[in-house]
């Protein structure tokens, strides 16, 4: 199984990294993160802990990148193959549907890791001016980004398996991501949600960053929510691929 997934993963990485869209996404992503970092530096008044917290957890552009990039990366993963007809070829090959989904998911995650990696250089830049960021806070922030990205990528992959139209897949997964991120925040503002506040706050991605990742904490409860959510969505994506047999 590992060999088959590895072969499929290389195929995915090749198609992701050799696509011009990848570098357009990278450039736009770095511009947005550049502005996000400059904003964080100004808003924190130079306090390094707060700069990291805003840049990797509280800043508006951070959330734009976190929510919008997975749909852009995943929209073509299955939809494009379905549209161009290569999906049937792939699925008639001696690989399981689950292996295809897993390889595509891992490929998307590696690519997004490639997008986020240069943001570490911002920290290197301010270190040159005497800033001493907390290593723990940086580690947990990036763990949070990885966990959130995995969940949102799984959402995008599920939508990509449902349609042959990339735009529909992107809009669908972006809407779902926005709901996942914003709904708990909006609902928590209303007094009638008070009895459910505890439950809702457990699902709040903002809350996860504010309450643990941006503080240098890793909470097993939060990590299991992201892990279970990701696995559940990947299983649903696999079921969605299998469902083609019923059509």
């Amino acid at each position: 199984m590992i060999q088959r997934v590895t072969t499929l993963l290389w195929r995915e990485l090749e198609s992701l990294f050799f696509s011009p869209l990848a570098y357009i996404v990278l450039t736009v992503f770095l511009v947005l993160n550049g502005f996000s970092f400059v904003y964080a530096l100004a808003a924190s008044g130079g306090v390094v802990e707060d700069t990291v917290k805003i840049f990797l957890g509280n800043g508006p552009l951070f959330w734009v990148c976190l929510v919008a990039v997975p749909p852009l990366v995943t929209m073509r993963l299955v939809s494009e193959e379905r549209r161009s007809g290569t999906l049937e070829v792939l699925l008639t090959a001696p690989v399981r549907d689950g292996e295809v989904v897993l390889a595509k998911f891992l490929g998307a995650m590696v690519f997004q890791g490639f997008l986020w990696a240069p943001t570490l250089l911002y920290v290197v830049v301010i270190r040159g001016y005497g800033a001493v960021p907390e290593a723990g806070q940086l580690i947990t922030s990036y763990v949070g980004i990885a966990a959130t990205t995995s969940l949102l990528t799984a959402v995008g992959l599920l939508f990509s398996t449902r349609t042959s139209n990339q735009i529909v897949a992107a809009v669908g997964s972006l809407t779902a991501n926005l709901l996942l991120v914003l709904l708990p925040v909006v609902v928590l503002q209303y007094p009638y949600a008070a009895p459910l506040a505890r439950l809702i706050s457990r699902l709040s991605m903002f809350g996860h960053f504010n309450g643990s990742f941006s503080r240098g904490l890793i909470d097993s409860g939060v990590m299991i929510w992201y892990g279970a959510g990701t696995v559940g969505l990947l299983l649903l994506a696999t079921r969605s691929l299998e469902a083609r047999r019923w059509r």
């Binding site: 806070q137 457990r202 240098g216 904490l217 279970a228 559940g232």
Partner: peptide, 24 residues
């Protein structure tokens, strides 16, 4: 699948099994 994800998450957030790693 949704039920299983909900159950696992609920169980994982029980105070008795929850653990927090402090990297500060």
């Amino acid at each position: 699948i949704i039920g299983l994800v909900g159950a696992v998450t609920y169980a994982a957030t029980r105070p008795t099994v929850r653990h927090t790693w402090d990297l500060t």
